[in-house]
Design a protein around this nucleic acid. Structure first.
Length: 316
DNA sequence: AAGACGAAAGTGGTTGA
DNA sequence: TCAACAACTTTCGTCTT
């Protein structure tokens, strides 16, 4: 009864949408920008409080438009329950602000208890809840794009299903999942970088990474120096031309077979060094070594090899 | 003085017995 | 499990611009 009363008040003019209440005309249109329903015949505003039933947010593609409907936030893998669980809040009031009867209150209390127990207190979800907050922290510190983060979350979920987490630290496994996701999506971060921002050492991280690859049957192609070039290039403020040239050099070197077993970051650094000189955007070995996290000596050694093997003339 | 270069010794990880 | 090994780093002295 309460329900119907309040509905009456809210939308009293609702039944008039077919014909105009003033002149009886059925020539009615809706002005979406003003949110008004107007009779085209006599000009009277029939309803000034239309409810927009369209999507909540701005959307730029069809896919987005479908995803971003009014039914809750988009599902995501980066929240332990994919953002889908129901919440029961702690106010003992019903939807209209009325106090609940004691009997009802007791029932809600029990519901709430089990709601929470089943949601967070199952061991897997507790694990996930912690892991996802760690993932949040790590990826924001490393500046990892959202898509890669999702990939890492999916990998971690699969690792849990395979029971790989038991007896290993959650932090290490999350870090390894992040590293694997980066490799897979070709936004390379080195093991060192990830280890620096998490509390696991590189050795442990590498072990977990290999475990994930093996147990989840993931094949990740060896990271190519080319993947690092855009990132280093950006940090060194180099033109796209120079970066493309560096990629060319790397490709040539690979065809010559002198890249095997060499540190890809070092190779990328050397290729950038050469192409920067060739394109008149010279950077010092020191600068390049710094962004690539290798030493000048390594840059120098790779550089010497490349110049020799590819017969590149570098003007001094 | 800064950058480039090279030699020598040290380090951490892989490989093969 | 251990030694051999290749790649990379650190350190330092010298040369070039």
């Amino acid at each position: 009864m309460v329900v119907e009363n309040s509905r009456e008040k809210e939308t009293g003019t609702d039944n008039d949408t077919e014909t105009c209440s003033e002149c009886g005309s059925s020539d009615i249109h809706v002005d979406y920008t003003r949110g008004e329903t107007i009779c085209s015949n006599c000009g009277i505003v029939i309803s000034a409080r239309n409810i927009d039933q369209g999507p909540e947010w701005r959307a730029f593609t069809n896919e987005e438009r479908n995803k971003r409907s009014r039914v809750g936030s988009p599902s995501t893998f980066t929240v332990h329950d994919k953002g889908l669980s129901t919440m029961i809040d702690w106010h003992d009031k019903d939807a209209y602000g009325k106090k609940l009867t004691p009997k009802r209150r007791a029932q809600i209390y029990r519901l709430r208890k089990w709601q929470i127990r089943t949601r967070v207190h199952s061991s897997m979800d507790r694990n996930l809840a912690f892991a996802m907050s760690e993932l949040d922290r790590l990826s924001s510190q490393l500046g990892i794009p959202r898509g890669v983060k999702e990939t890492a979350a999916v990998l971690y979920r699969r690792a849990i299903e395979k029971k790989l987490i038991r007896g290993r630290s959650i932090e290490a496994m999350i870090a390894a999942a992040v590293y694997a996701a980066c490799r897979e999506r070709k936004v390379p971060r080195t093991l060192d970088e990830i280890a620096r921002h998490s509390r696991v050492n590189r050795k442990e991280l590498g072990r977990c990474y290999r475990l994930i690859l093996r147990e989840l049957d993931i094949i990740i192609p060896q990271s190519s120096p080319i993947d690092f070039i855009p990132r280093f290039g950006t940090e060194l403020v180099l033109s796209g031309r120079t970066q493309r040239k560096a990629a060319e050099i790397v490709t040539l070197a690979r065809d010559k077979g002198i890249t095997a077993g060499k540190d890809p970051t070092g190779l990328a650094a050397a290729a950038i060094y050469i192409s920067a000189i060739l394109e008149g955007e010279r950077r010092t070995q020191r600068e390049i070594a710094e962004v690539a996290h290798v030493t000048e000596v390594t840059v120098r050694n790779r550089y010497k090899e490349l110049v020799k093997e590819l017969n590149i003339r570098v003007e001094v």
